[in-house]
Amino acid sequence: MRTLKAKILAMLALWVVWMLLTAPWSGQEAIAGAIIAILVAFLPLFPASLLGDLKLGPKALVYMVAYFFVFIKALVLSNLDVAFRVLHPKLPIDPGIVKVRTRLKTPLGRLLLANSITLTPGTITVEMRGEDVFVHWIKVAATDPESATEAIVTGFEKYLEVICG
């Protein structure tokens, strides 16, 4: 069941990419693309298992949209933060690596969490080991794992837990 869901999602993703590549659309190209997408997604070794972690209930879809906007907001804020730090004459940085914890178990959730942390204000994921995530923080505000987790991870985790466990 889970692999079937993964394969159908991979098929849809391949077809959407194909449709974006063949920009002035025609019916024949759409059908040919759909057939090839089905064939490729159901190849035995096609790496689609990552997409099987995605949940597709109505609540998960709402959280996906909300997560998208949270992510965009974090991306813009982090760029304004970088602009402030780079253009400030005194370079207000105080870097360090802190340890935070995550409750996410699935590979897709952990991938999205690591990418999100990298694109949020002042943080870069350095290493993930089990439930520990090591984060380079350009201005360390808290060194103990609990408050650092509160500051860095919690904002994304509550969405990602619903989207992909």
Partner: peptide, 11 residues
């Protein structure tokens, strides 16, 4: 590199 707390090196 100046890393004030370096949790990864400690681990």
């Amino acid at each position: 590199a100046r890393l004030e707390p370096d949790a990864l090196a400690e681990a």
